[in-house]
Design a protein around this nucleic acid. Structure first.
Lengths: 105, 105
DNA sequence: TGGTTCCGTAAGCTATGACTTACTTTTTGT
DNA sequence: ACAAAAAGTAAGTCATAGCTTACGGAACCA
C-alpha cells in the first residue's frame, strides 16, 4: 500500500462519488455508471484506480461484477490523519503557550 | 471549504511532504524548500494550494513568512473519513451476516 | 538611500490524467 | 451453437497540474 495511491485515488470527484455510491452496499458497474455523466469504460478505469489503491474490491458474479468498499483500505488513511492531527494540535497548543508566556514577561 | 480542494491538495507528494515538515512546528518558505528537489517558487505555489484548501495558514514575520498547520482544516477530512468508515464496516458486517444466513439454510 | 534577503506572481513548457470510441472476452439464455 | 449482456482493454485526443525562469514588491541593514 502507498499513501500516494490512496490520496491520488481520492483526489478525483468521480471516484469519491463512486465510493459514496458503494456506501449503500455492493454495486455492479452498470449501476455505478448510470448516474454519472460519462461512458461506462471511463467508470471501469476509475474503479481500477480505486482497486489498486485498496479502497474497494471487486467480485465477479455471473456476467456482472460487484464492487464493494474495503474497510481496511481506509485504515491507512486514518492512521495518517491521526498522526497529522495530533502534531497539528500539539503545535497549536505549544504556540498558544508561548504566546501566553510572552504576555507574562 | 470543499472536499475537492482538500483531497486535491493532499494528492501531491510534495505537498504531503510540506505538511510533514510543518508537523515539527511553523516554518518559513526557505526552510521548507531546502530539502525539496525543486525551485523555491514551486514550493510557494504548493503552499498556496495548501492555504486555499485550509490545511495551513501563513503569517508574515519580518521579511520572512511562517507557515503552520491548521488543525481545523483536518476536521472536514476526518468527518468524511468517519462517515465512509462507518458505512464500509456496516456493509461488511451485513455481507457477513447474509453469508452466514445462507450457510444455515 | 542603496543593497540584500525573502517571498509571491506571471508566462511558458511539458508530462500526465481523464475522457472518448472501438474492440475483445466471458457468461448467460434460447 | 448463436445472440445478447456485462465489463475490461487499447489507442488516441485534450485539458490541466506541476515545473521552470524571470520579474516585482516588501522588510531589514549598511
Amino acid at each position: 500500500m502507498t499513501y500516494d495511491a490512496i490520496f491520488t485515488a481520492l483526489a478525483d470527484p468521480t471516484r469519491r462519488a463512486l465510493l459514496e455510491a458503494m456506501r449503500a452496499g455492493p454495486q455492479n458497474v452498470k449501476t455505478l455508471a448510470a448516474p454519472l455523466p460519462m461512458s461506462r469504460p471511463a467508470v471501469s478505469q476509475h474503479l481500477k484506480v480505486l482497486c489498486d489503491a485498496g479502497l474497494i474490491e471487486g467480485e465477479t458474479c455471473g456476467t456482472s461484477r460487484l464492487y464493494r468498499l474495503r474497510p481496511e483500505g481506509l485504515t491507512d488513511l486514518r492512521t495518517w490523519l491521526d498522526g497529522m492531527w495530533d502534531d497539528a494540535l500539539a503545535s497549536f497548543v505549544a504556540e498558544a503557550q508561548r504566546q501566553a508566556k510572552g504576555k507574562l514577561s
